[in-house]
């Protein structure tokens, strides 16, 4: 259970996140959407302890996120940010192996090995597992990072713009993977997304931000309405229902 109360963050005297309060339902996919500078990435950073919050509470599984031991937290919650420029010569398998670090440190047990194998198989990376990360395409690299998160075996998975820099094919596959992480592995997935339609089609809940505040939080059907979106993004929207999901067109 993750409860966020009155979360606030300031940069250089400017309030970027202002009194954000919401509760993240367990075992669901939750997308954070909103225009540029609405504070969604900062909220993501604060609920994953990458950024310190100025005031407010992030209540995670019984205690404040700052009170958790970093090591213990890393067994419960995984975060993947956009800034993954790994410098070292690292193979896919070695990267995935790092996912077991919170459990076994540098000594990998045979149990770890089997978890790593499963993670690689789950992301269909067997044929790439001995390739170096910097030789992969963007989509493959993203899959390798997800495999690492799977190996990390956490209940919560936080992804900051996982579809960024991916073409339509890879982005859609990434979103399908996100859905599988939730449906098949029972994880709670929280993502920051730019594409509203991906958010609408693949998530259970949507949290829309505007000017550092939550503009709307609820199920997809509650949030994705013509009025809400026009209000948040300041452009005209039309909503169509396709495959039972409210998809939006903007112009």
């Amino acid at each position: 259970m993750m409860k966020i109360q009155e979360l606030t963050k300031q940069y250089d005297g400017k309030t970027v996140v202002d009194g954000v309060t919401f509760t993240i339902p367990k075992g669901k996919v939750i997308s954070l959407i909103g225009p540029n500078g609405a504070g969604k990435s900062t909220v993501m950073g604060m609920i994953s302890r990458l950024i310190a919050h100025d005031s407010g509470l992030v209540h995670f599984e019984g205690k404040d996120i700052g009170k958790w031991k970093s090591k213990e937290l890393s067994k419960r919650l995984a975060i993947l940010t956009q800034s993954n420029n790994i410098q070292m010569k690292l193979t896919v398998r070695e990267l995935v192996t790092f996912g077991r670090f919170p459990y076994s440190g540098n000594r990998i047990t045979s149990e770890d090995e089997s978890i790593i194998n499963q993670a690689i198989a789950y992301m269909e990376l067997e044929e790439f597992q001995d390739r170096f990360i910097d030789e992969l395409s963007g989509g493959q690299r993203q899959r390798a990072l997800i495999a690492m998160v799977i190996a990390q075996d956490t209940e919560y998975v936080l992804l900051d713009e996982p579809t960024n820099n991916l073409d339509i094919y890879h982005a859609t596959n990434m979103m399908k993977t996100v859905r599988r992480l939730c449906d098949e592995l029972g994880k709670t997935v929280i993502l920051v997304l730019h594409e509203i339609n991906y958010a609408a089609f693949y998530s259970d809940y949507i949290c829309a931000f505007k000017d550092g505040k939550i503009a709307k939080f609820g199920t997809v059907e509650e949030v994705i309405t013509k009025e809400n979106l026009s209000e948040i993004y300041q452009v005209d929207f039309e909503i169509l229902t396709i495959a039972g999901k409210p998809l939006s067109i903007y112009y």
Partner: peptide
């Protein structure tokens, strides 16, 4: 060497 965010993520 995985970078700051990954290192924090891994505890």
């Amino acid at each position: 060497t995985l970078g700051k965010h990954q290192a924090i993520n891994l505890g």
